[in-house]
Structures are given as C-alpha cells and as structure tokens.
C-alpha cells in the first residue's frame, strides 16, 4: 500500500525530516553535555498505512512519539503533517493538530481517572473542544464503544472495573472520539496477554480497513510489528538504522542491530500457528 502511494506520487500524510531532540543534562558545576535522544530521524507515512518503529529501550522510540504528538518540541528538524510544518506552529494552532494525532500508551489504567465512568472518559476530550452538544457526544460515544468491541451498556461502568483488554479498547475509543487521522501507539499491546493482544491487533486492522486509519506502531515486539505494519523502521541510539518491508527486515536484515533484535526474540516451536479457525 505504501509503495503504491509512492508510485502514484501521493503526498505522505506525515513526513519527518532530520528530526533531532537533545535533552540537556545539567551538572552541578559547569555546563552539562546533551543527550541526543533523536539524532536525525527521517521517514514518511502515507494515509491508511502502518509504520512500525522497533528498537531496544532507550533507542529514542518514545521521544519520537512525544515529538510527533506535539508533547515535546524537537531541537531541530521538521515534522510535516498534511504539508504543514508543525514544529514551528504556535501553541494555539498545535491544539488543532494534536486532536488529529492521538497517542495511546502501554498502560491505559494510569491514563484514566479510576473513579470516572466509561461515558465520562469518552466524552471529556470532546467536551474540552466544546463544539458539540451533550446528546451528540453521547451518540458518538455509543457508536465508538460498539466499534471497538465494547457494548454501549458499558457506559456506566467505572474505568477501574474494566479488564486490561477492555481498558485498551476504551483508550482506542477515546482517541477516536476526536476523529484523528493518525494513531500513535506507544507499546500499546505490550502489557496485554497474548490472546488479548491478538484481539486488539485485529481491532486495529479492522479500523484501518473501515476508516483508513494511519498508524505509527511503536513496539519492541518484532513479530507483531511484522504482522501489522506495511513498513518497519529499526531504531538504535536515536537513528533509524534500517527501514523496509517486514518481509525484508525479517528475512534479509542488513544491519547488525536488526540481526541482534531478531536473534533475541524468543521463539515458540509451535507449528500450528497459521492454522485458520473455521
């Protein structure tokens, strides 16, 4: 899909160019040296496709997510979203952009108020924007609950009463309330059980085929990255060391980092993995 977009000369939805993010580390005496969390990262994502970013912890994946979601200001470089450079935008203009790029974290439990009901949690982001009436917001909340595989009768439940998988579905529903164009998933499946991971992965695939959602899927799970993504970018020390189609990355890894990552993945010698359930 991605290459198709490129062939037709389509504009990428999101384009990152030479992104650098330096965190300064202050010492007690003298000026501190900087830590380059991102050291010249460039890539582009086309509408309706998935780019997976894989790498060890500390490779800069999460910093990248934060920069894209406009939660951190990059030190230099450009992030073009629909051809607009969002790095230079004012805080006011950023608000409009932020709703179009929603971030989903590893543990949604810590991003919900445990005493709030599911309904309130869903409506809050919209209420903050303040464009819709209460009834309209509720209708949308119901529709989204159904879409992510929770029933609308769950509206009255408390966030703390949900299971891990249900909470992650709710996090996705809340992100979708604002009708974003891009979902940035930062280790969004990592804390879930294998069987629940599969359910949420399927939900992501369904949303992509029904609404043309675009994903930036940040993970250290290479198998899941290969399953979901059209392209994989391997990061190490703030740089992208390898970028290509999943098949290529898995079968003909070029960089040492990718080979190491692949070698570290524990494998299950189970042969029946591809058996389709009737």
């Amino acid at each position: 899909m991605n290459t198709a977009g490129r062939d037709k000369g389509m504009q990428p939805l999101l384009e990152v160019e030479n992104l650098v993010k330096t965190y300064s580390r202050r010492r007690l005496a003298g000026s501190g040296e900087g830590v380059r969390a991102l050291d010249g990262v460039s890539f582009s994502i086309f509408r309706g496709t998935t780019l997976a970013i894989v790498g060890e912890s500390g490779s800069g994946k999460s910093t990248l997510a934060f920069c894209l979601a406009c939660l951190e200001k990059p030190t230099s470089g450009a992030i073009r979203f629909e051809d607009k450079d969002i790095v230079t935008l004012s805080e006011k203009d950023l608000r409009a952009i932020r709703r179009q790029m929603q971030l989903i974290f590893q543990d949604p439990a810590s991003s919900f108020n445990p005493r709030w009901g599911v309904g309130e949690i869903l409506i809050e982001p919209l209420a903050l924007q303040g464009n819709l009436g209460r009834d309209e917001m509720r209708t949308r909340a119901h529709a989204l609950l159904e879409q992510v595989g929770l029933s609308s009768s769950m509206e009255a439940k408390l966030a703390s009463e949900l299971s891990g998988g249900q909470r992650q579905r709710l996090a996705i529903a809340r992100a979708l309330m604002l009708e974003p164009k891009v979902l940035i998933l930062d280790e969004a499946l990592s804390a879930l059980d294998c069987s629940v991971q599969a359910q949420i992965a399927n939900l992501l695939v369904d949303l992509q085929s029904s609404c043309g959602m675009t994903y930036l899927f940040i993970t250290h799970d290479l198998a899941m990255a290969a399953h979901l993504a059209d392209e994989i970018a391997v990061m190490s020390k703030g740089r992208i060391v390898e970028h290509g189609a999943p098949n290529k990355i898995l079968n003909q890894p070029q960089s040492v980092i990718t080979r190491e990552l692949l070698a570290a993945v524990p494998r299950l010698g189970f042969a029946g993995t591809r058996v389709a359930e009737s």
Binding site: C194, N202, D206, N247, F270, G272, V275, E277
Partner: peptide
C-alpha cells in the same frame, strides 16, 4: 504440540515471526 484446546488457541493467537502475513490475511485467530 499442545493438546488442550485452550493452549492450542493461545498459541495460534501469537503472530509468527518467520512467516509474516500475506497481503490479504491480516486477522489473527483469537
């Protein structure tokens, strides 16, 4: 070669690393 239907279903839901998906087949057995 797990024998319990639960163990079998659990293992099937894990995406395999060695053979990434084909274009059409993207849903994991859950």
């Amino acid at each position: 070669s797990p024998k319990h239907p639960y163990t079998q279903a659990l293992f099937r839901s894990i995406p395999p690393l060695d053979e990434p998906h084909d274009a059409g087949e993207r849903s994991l057995p859950t």
